[in-house]
Amino acid sequence: MAELQLELKEKIIEQLSLEDVEVSEIGDNDPLFGDGLGLDSIDALELIVMLEKDYGIKLKDPKEGKLIFESIGVMAAYIEKNRTK
């Protein structure tokens, strides 16, 4: 799980162009949206694309993202349980 969490942090920094953010600055339980990393609605869509592209998880309802993308920890647990690749 720790490996997947690290992988997610690296992917998020790269794919969401968070150039001034270091992996070490993202806590496993830090909120990704709002006061946390400050991600926005377009970032949420990018994360949905990333789930499908990299882990073979297709969200049927984009609203599910609100729960899944709460933090790196929650996201990693969801991926671990549902990934097809």
């Binding site: 970032d43 869509l45 990018e46 694309v49 499908e52 592209k53």
Partner: peptide, 11 residues
């Protein structure tokens, strides 16, 4: 085969 349009690019 690898059709994943990027919302961040599209905007």
């Amino acid at each position: 085969e690898e059709y994943y349009p990027s919302p961040a690019l599209f905007v």
